[in-house]
């Protein structure tokens, strides 16, 4: 698993990246009440808006950590947005993206680097 400074996580399986927000981000947001997931087939560039996650007080944009094409969105979040709080780095994933350049994945932070980044906040 890799991480961004914007608190997204990525897990790579072949050329398909599963993307979500980190446990830290989910904790900071508070109770998630709605997730707007992307349409399948949409192409996204790294840094572009991929999804929107809403708590009662805030709506936050989630950015695509990597470029590619959306191949699946987590439909289960529509009825159970609380999964993002309960299992942010597992069942609470937002979308799967088929990525063009797997080397970009390696450039992201690993767990230790992300933890160190959190420490610095």
């Amino acid at each position: 698993m890799r991480f961004t400074k914007d608190h997204e996580w990525v897990a790579l399986d072949g050329d398909v990246a599963t993307i979500g927000i980190t446990a830290y981000a989910a904790e900071q947001l508070g109770d998630v009440v709605f997730v707007e997931t992307p349409e399948v087939g949409k192409t996204v560039s790294a840094g572009e808006g991929l999804a929107v996650v809403e708590s009662v007080k805030a709506a936050s944009d989630v950015y695509a950590p990597l470029s590619g094409e959306v191949v699946e969105a987590n439909a289960a979040l529509a009825d159970a947005p609380e999964t993002v709080n309960q299992a942010p780095e597992a069942g609470g994933w937002f979308a799967k993206v088929k990525i063009a350049d797997p080397s970009a994945y390696e450039a992201l932070m690993d767990r230790a680097a992300y933890d160190a980044f959190l420490e610095s906040l």
Binding site: D6, H7, E8, I21, A25, Q28, L29, G30, D31, V53, S55, V56, K57, A58, A59, S60, D61, V62, Y63
Partner: peptide, 10 residues
Amino acid sequence: MTMQNVGRPT
């Protein structure tokens, strides 16, 4: 993501 935690706690 954009981290908006400035609002009131919920």
